[in-house]
Nucleic acid binder design. Sequence first.
DNA 1: CTGTTAGCGCTTTCAT
DNA 2: ATGAAAGCGCTAACAG
Lengths: 334, 334
Amino acid sequence: MATIKDVAARAGVSQSTVYYALSGKRPISQEVRQRIAAAVAELDYTASSLGQRMRAGRSYSIGMIAPQLPTSDTAAMEMLVSTAETASQADYTLGIFMGQTPSKVLRLLRNQFLDGLILVETTHVDARIEALRKTKYPFVMIGRTQNLEGLTTVDFDFEGAIFKAFEALVQLGHKTIGFVAPNATEDLNVENWFHIQRGFERARERYCFEAVVEKTRLTIEGGYTATEKLLETEPRITAIVASGNTFTGILRSLYSRRIRVPDECSLVGIATAQVAEWTIPKLTSVDIPLREMSKIATQLLLHKLAGKDIQEQIIMPAQLVVRETIAPPSAKLR
Amino acid sequence: MATIKDVAARAGVSQSTVYYALSGKRPISQEVRQRIAAAVAELDYTASSLGQRMRAGRSYSIGMIAPQLPTSDTAAMEMLVSTAETASQADYTLGIFMGQTPSKVLRLLRNQFLDGLILVETTHVDARIEALRKTKYPFVMIGRTQNLEGLTTVDFDFEGAIFKAFEALVQLGHKTIGFVAPNATEDLNVENWFHIQRGFERARERYCFEAVVEKTRLTIEGGYTATEKLLETEPRITAIVASGNTFTGILRSLYSRRIRVPDECSLVGIATAQVAEWTIPKLTSVDIPLREMSKIATQLLLHKLAGKDIQEQIIMPAQLVVRETIAPPSAKLR
DNA sequence: CTGTTAGCGCTTTCAT
DNA sequence: ATGAAAGCGCTAACAG
């Protein structure tokens, strides 16, 4: 492993000359420059980034912290990939960390192991955020929390998304709509229950329809049992609105009951385009632009690391993408 | 940011005493130990990992390199998560890198930015591997390549998997089986065409059935069009074998033709349990234990980093998991 | 039981 | 246009 010292010796010059020749921060005579270039080539020298980071006093790494990355969820993947891409373009490395306690998270920063953080799957009441808020360490969150004072966040307009989902169905003529809603206690972390609730209430105020609400965890199994209950308590349902990771469960329930989508039952979700393109039939959804959001979050963090003072709450707008799961209610009103 | 120097000054002792007190590598008197503990607490000192890594000459980071992480693929996610978990248990950080050229990959190591590598989505002919093979840098690959000489690899028995998939169908009585096979040229990277091909041939030798082969890219769209072609060229097909990311496409084609699975057409795949539990109906598959494989690969790498000389090719065994997509061929022989 | 000192590899100030 | 030397924060060999 050749160091700058070796190169200097080989080229018969001093360390600093090698450094300046390589960095171009100082004029170096033609002849010396060539000797150095030759030595670099012969020794296959590359500056040790460990030394550089030591000297700079920063690690040029940022971390992404999720309470625990649920692999059932492609969402985490999208965020990771997008964040890693954005970071590496700025010559930062992304380290990923899971299930870290607030104190461990703090240590990663105190350590100088990480220069900054991206927090995902933030909860309404989030110990990690409170721990970080007291410090000066730069971090950005994807998601929201109770008190946004002084925080930099990137989130999605879940309220508008739910509103638009119901709106689309009502405008198609649906009168009885099932709602697979997040259970306030259990799913506070996955999506913001509060905003989803508000979007639903706004839709109820604005439009006239009968809503059948089934609260559940936003998992495949949750979606399945919620749909089963929905269809049992109100068989006249002609459409369903849902979010989270419930779609496979919902479709499974409909499939097993031989209810064709969208002919006999429409479905609108809040999901990433990824997931929406995966279901059969393809899910009509208000797409969550997770990759875009992660990219923005990462860029904001990098700006912070560059010394800019940023305090910004970004909310990505909701827009319905019509795919294959909605249609007017069937005439026979099952 | 308090350093060991600050602590030493505050406690009125030397740096090394602080160090030894904290590391426990040398006996320290009760009284001094307490003064140091107090200083540490007051200054909120944590050893800078940058300094530690500098001193140790290693970054305590490993990298995972994928040509480009396809987010459509949950496989990458599973590997990432499992690798990150295993690494962090050994106090290593996992950095993720995408679409790096061989020379960039090498630089990450020369740099001392990374201590070792995990390569995923290796191809039959893989420039990254050849570049690394010439060096002494520790790396482990998930997947295989042409020449395994001196390499450490963890892979799955795709040959056995395909064999078992056909075997299961033949034993149920299927006579005409469609095979959505990887296109040798395009999908060399995604799964090992060679082994899949061999498994297929072994099944043909051992059992008597008619096979209709459709080669394609192993994507959703590939699966869809392959199935369309399969059903057009041979409507008597009563079962399909497939791998890769084709299942949504295959099921979409069957669904649109109103062919019920498994009543009218069985389907056996090579997939992770994740994916298999996601489809409707749940996919009967030879499960690829990706998480286990990643964990093993990471552990092997960590052992290498600890100085052990490991050269090992591990092949995980294939085993069929029966879920909901297979049944005997329907009596009416569509 | 404790202290002094050197050195990892880089960048940069100060000196020539 | 070039060189000498210091220092980032840690660890460890050497010395008492």
